[in-house]
Computed example of a mutant assay.
Amino acid sequence: MSADPLAWLVTLEGVPSAYAAARDSIDTVLRDRGLRRTTPETTAESLLRGAHASAVLEGSTSSLDEVRAGTADAIAADSVRVSTELLSLVPTVGRSPLQALARVHALAGAASVDPERLGRPRDPESAARLRDIASVLTSTTEAPALLVAGLVHAELVTAAPFASHNGIVARAVERLVLVARGVDAKSLVVPEAAHLALRAAYESNLRGYAEGGAAGVHAWTLYAAEAFSAAAEASPVRR
């Protein structure tokens, strides 16, 4: 039996309690509000808000109202296109994660990337990083699902394995993991909006993850737990 590849993360100071608190925040929203108010329209609203927030983080200047009206800029349109098909990939991300990652990029880049580059890694090093990320998604681990989602998010952003839209892909896959692993089965929390609200910390901790060694990974892990709690607060079931 292979060792748990994420076991060391769970032993870092503050991580177990941070993730327990984040999961409690999500469960409280879903239990106390979500189960009574959940409709397909609520899920669609969560996905739309997430698509808008992710697009802004990627450089879009469009407002949420423009996204709703279908008059948003190209980056926002790319993000919305991902959101419309994202939940159909729930069965795939655990079984064939490389296929799911490729599909998310193909959706994001469909309007602007050469078809031959859609869903394909930029180079052999990027292909290796994608295989590593896929192995995390298929490994047996005692780490919380939230931690797995946050780690995969950071890996995809910092590896930038695709020709474009790596941030949009990373944030979409984070949401996808939360659904696939049963944290938020109806996709009601909005992690993308949390990252936008915490933008300075989000971007700083991603830089630390890329450049700061174990300390940077630790800091990102703690940041991600904070963001997941904020994602619960951003859910449309609270409005």
Score class of each variant (00 low, 15 high):
M1S: 13
W8Y: 14
L9E: 00
A18Q: 02
Y19S: 07
Y19Q: 05
A21R: 14
R23S: 08
D24Q: 14
I26N: 03
D27Y: 02
D27N: 07
T28Q: 09
V29N: 05
L30C: 06
D32R: 12
D32K: 05
L35W: 11
L35T: 15
T38S: 12
T42Y: 04
A44R: 13
E45H: 09
R49Y: 08
R49D: 01
G50Y: 03
G50S: 14
H52I: 01
H52V: 03
T61C: 03
S63D: 05
D65T: 13
D65Y: 02
I75K: 07
I75N: 04
I75V: 15
A77E: 15
V80E: 07
V82F: 00
V82A: 02
S83M: 14
L87N: 04
S88F: 10
S88K: 14
V90N: 06
P91I: 12
S96P: 00
P97T: 03
L98Y: 01
L98Q: 06
Q99A: 12
Q99Y: 02
A100W: 04
L101P: 07
A102K: 06
R103A: 15
H105F: 05
A106G: 14
L107K: 03
G109L: 02
A111I: 08
S112M: 00
D114I: 01
P115G: 09
P115D: 11
L118E: 11
L118I: 05
R120A: 10
R122V: 13
R122I: 13
R129V: 06
R129Y: 06
R131M: 07
D132E: 15
I133T: 15
A134W: 04
S135E: 12
S135C: 00
L137T: 07
T138E: 10
T141P: 05
T141Y: 07
A143K: 11
P144E: 13
P144A: 12
L146A: 08
V148F: 00
V148M: 00
A149V: 03
G150W: 02
L156Q: 06
A159V: 10
A160G: 08
P161K: 10
F162I: 04
V169C: 01
A170M: 05
A170G: 06
A180D: 04
G182A: 10
A185V: 14
K186P: 02
S187D: 12
S187H: 00
V189H: 10
V189M: 12
V190P: 00
V190C: 08
P191M: 03
A193K: 05
L196H: 11
L196C: 07
A197W: 04
L198G: 02
L198N: 12
A200E: 15
A200I: 03
S204C: 00
L206Y: 01
G208A: 10
A210Y: 03
E211Y: 15
E211F: 11
G213E: 00
A214W: 12
A215S: 11
H218T: 07
W220K: 02
T221N: 02
A224C: 12
A225S: 11
F228Y: 15
A230M: 02
A232G: 08
S235A: 15
P236E: 05
P236W: 02
V237D: 04
R238F: 06
R238S: 08
R238Q: 08
